[in-house]
Every structure is written in structure tokens, then in C-alpha cells.
Amino acid sequence: MNGVVLITGISAAGKSTVAQALAERLPRSAHVRGDAFRRMVVNGGAGMTPDLAEEAVRQLHLRYRIAANAADLYFEAGFTAIVQDVVLGEDLTKFAKMIRTRPLYVVVLAPDPVEVERRERERPKTGYGEWTIGRLDAALRGETPRLGLWLDTSRQTPEETVTEIISRAQEAEIHENPA
């Protein structure tokens, strides 16, 4: 794979683990963690809550623009950039348009909610506060365009998921800007 890979899904879907494992398999790669840009805000940060406050959405879109630009810059420097973040609903199409690099590979990790609950319990950090797994999963499955490669990773190890992403890269590839 050469280009930019965008890996998305809800919290605890395995995005960070899979993105890192994919980056480690590729010869020249960079792992762009979208959430790192959120953590850079020292004062005035507005976290995403179910009420979707205007300022929180504005900051989320800023984070997406920064991540897209970072991915493009890594690609221009000869790296395959693997970007991972929670990108749901119409934001997936918008994010894909922000990334100038082609080929662009979009991978949506969509394990079943029961598996997400298990993963959330077993990890040291928590991705759910005011949000619920059911609400984010409904947004993923009901509001997110079927762009790229969607994988049910409920019964896969991260290594198996990476192998599937690499073997099915053609299905994930976005050639033109999505409509």
C-alpha cells in the first residue's frame, strides 16, 4: 500500500491498534493519530458530546483538517500515512475530500456492539462518557456513507485485520473525491 489510509470506527473498535500494526507492516510509514491534535489544545477545548455543540463540531473539523494535512505532508515526504480517528456520518465523505493524496484507502472497522463493549471493559482508557456504544454504533451503521472497505472485526485479531486490509486494499481505494 502506498498513499494515505484512513481508518475509522467507533471508540474501542480497534482503530489505534490496527493503524499501528498496519504502519509496522509497511516499509515506510507514519501513524497519524487524530486524537493527538485534540489533546494539543491547552485551554478552550470543547469536547464532543451528544448535543453536538457548535464549538465542539468546529474543533472536531479543525482536528480533521490538521490530520488530513499531516497525512498529505507525510505522503509527499515518501511515507504511507495511516490516519486513525472517529469519523462518522457525512464527516467521512468530508474527511476523504480533505485528503488530497491519491490513492486514498478508507477502512471502516465495524465490530458488533457486544464486542465493542468487551473491548471497552478490557482497555485502560475509556472512550465513552456521555456517549453510549449503542448511539455511536447506530450513527456508524445508519448515518455513515458506505465508503471504502467495511470490516466486521468482531472475531479477528489486529494482525488478521491488517492482513485483510492489505489483501483487500483495492476495495478500500478511493480514486476520486467522493460525492
Rank of each mutant, 00 (worst) to 15 (best):
M48D: 08
I133P: 01
A172H: 10
D112C: 11
V116F: 04
I174F: 08
T153Q: 07
R39D: 14
K97E: 11
A19H: 00
L22P: 08
R25G: 10
A23N: 03
S29I: 01
L52G: 08
A172R: 11
E115N: 08
A46D: 10
R123D: 00
K15T: 03
R119M: 06
Q59Y: 04
G9Y: 02
L149A: 05
R121I: 05
V87C: 12
N69R: 15
P111H: 09
V83H: 02
L140E: 00
T17S: 15
I66G: 03
V114Y: 07
D85S: 14
V32N: 02
L92S: 04
A139C: 11
T8K: 03
A46L: 07
A68F: 04
P111E: 01
G89C: 07
F79K: 09
E120R: 05
P111Q: 06
R65S: 13
A12P: 03
D85C: 04
E76I: 04
Q170D: 13
S11G: 12
M1D: 09
L26F: 07
D112I: 06
G89W: 06
I82N: 03
G127D: 00
L147Q: 03
A19Y: 01
V114N: 07
Y105F: 15
L60P: 02
T80Q: 05
L52N: 12
A67W: 04
V57N: 07
L136A: 01
T163R: 15
G129C: 00
R119L: 02
G127P: 02
A23D: 05
A56H: 05
A19P: 04
E54L: 11
N177I: 11
V87N: 04
E120C: 00
T153M: 06
E171D: 14
Q156H: 15
V108P: 04
A77Q: 15
K94Y: 10
K94S: 12
L104S: 03
Q20Y: 11
E120N: 00
S16T: 15
E115P: 01
E90P: 10
D137Q: 13
R141H: 15
A81Q: 03
V18W: 03
M1A: 13
